[in-house]
């Protein structure tokens, strides 16, 4: 039984047309992110002229304006990387759990990373950022596995409701432990508090280099999982039927996502909702094929975090709003919108 030649041609033509329009959208998105990068370097609490911006970017720090701009460059770079990591890890978590509400914040992964770092500081006297990254990734991984395990027990597997409840509850519990650990230690309380809000304001090239290896490995593993996620999207039984080793596919993809969000959390503190919002918007843009969705989600995440960071600087002048607060206020209404769109029996 061979399919009719005409139909087969029509399918091929359709696919080429889709690719073309997706490429166009990808180009627009890249342009938008580039624009935001410029904005992020140019806009801040202190207004600076174009001349100062140019010389600041080249590394001159003679005037206050140039110094401010020079500080904004690593900040922009970190926002770019962190946003891409969060957007990508969100897309993967949604793919792995087949769950539209999966997000490192909602699943409590951020609070797991936070608790691990705080315990490291308070009990083991860790004080080097290089170790924080490892600890944060470990905390994120343990929490992610734990929440997913709890959330997928019982009938229907990991439904949005069960997963979100398990995540929210775990998150509250972990925050209580974090407070219990910090409380008798006034010496570290200040640092922990600043870190817990989530921001890219304190970025330096040093801190970026520290998380860079983890991000690179995370990006690589994640992007390589695209095809597997496409099979997983059909359900475990079908994916196995298509010749996929379901456990391996899921484990690899999750590892990539956890590396990304653990490293990001170590560098910036917990930033919620980027991983939730971005993949949904990107699905509207390029559809559900993970080979497109994953890279576009990374781009989109970078764009959103830059936007949130710039907005936080503008809204609260002369002070600034931490990017974690801004993303929470952008993301929560979006979360509610997604919930409202779902059919009751899908929750």
């Amino acid at each position: 039984m061979t399919g009719s030649a005409g139909l087969s041609d029509a399918i091929a033509v359709g696919r080429r047309r889709d690719s073309l329009s997706r490429l166009l959208r990808l180009g627009l998105l890249i342009a938008a992110v580039a624009g935001l990068c410029v904005l992020s370097v140019a806009v801040g609490t202190r207004p600076v002229g174009w001349a100062e911006i140019l010389s600041g970017v080249q590394g001159h720090v003679e005037t206050i304006g140039e110094a401010a701009v020079a500080l904004r460059v690593p900040r922009t770079l970190l926002a770019l990387l962190a946003g891409a990591a969060l957007g990508l890890s969100g897309a993967i978590m949604q793919g792995v759990t087949r769950n539209p509400l999966a997000d490192p914040g909602i699943l409590g992964v951020n609070s797991g990373a936070a608790l691990a770092v705080v315990i490291g500081m308070a009990w083991f006297g860790m004080d080097s950022a290089a170790i924080y990254v490892w600890v944060a990734i470990l905390g994120a991984a343990v929490t992610a596995v734990f929440v997913y395990a709890i959330g997928s027990l019982g009938r229907g597997g990991a439904t949005p409701l069960k997963l979100a409840l398990a995540g929210a509850a775990t998150s509250i519990a972990l925050s209580c432990f974090t407070i219990a650990v910090v409380l008798p230690r006034n010496d570290i309380a200040g640092g922990v508090r600043a870190w817990q809000i989530g921001g890219v304001g304190g970025a330096t090239y040093g801190s970026i280099w520290l998380v860079m290896p983890f991000l690179v490995v995370g990006f690589a593993i994640s992007l390589l999982s695209a095809r597997r996620l496409n099979s997983l999207a059909l359900g475990d039984e079908l994916a196995a039927g298509l010749g996929e080793n379901v456990a391996v596919a899921r484990g690899m993809a999750a590892l990539g996502a956890i590396l990304l969000c653990g490293a990001t959390t170590a560098a910036c503190g917990p930033i919620g909702f980027v991983g939730l919002v971005v993949p949904h918007l990107c699905r509207l843009l390029v559809g559900v094929d993970h080979r497109w969705l994953l890279p576009v989600s990374a781009l989109g995440g970078a764009g959103l975090l830059l936007l949130a960071d710039v907005a936080g600087r503008i809204v609260a002048r002369p002070s600034e709003l931490a990017v974690g607060v801004v993303t929470a206020f952008i993301g929560a209404p979006f979360f509610i919108w997604i919930v409202r769109r779902q059919k009751v029996w899908e929750l």
Binding site: L101, G105, I106, P160, L161, A164, L165, A168, G272, F273, A328, G331, A332, F335, I336, V339, R340, L347
Partner: peptide, 8 residues
């Protein structure tokens, strides 16, 4: 679910 989003 909406409550959880709001709480966050």
């Amino acid at each position: 679910l909406i409550g959880i989003g709001m709480a966050a």
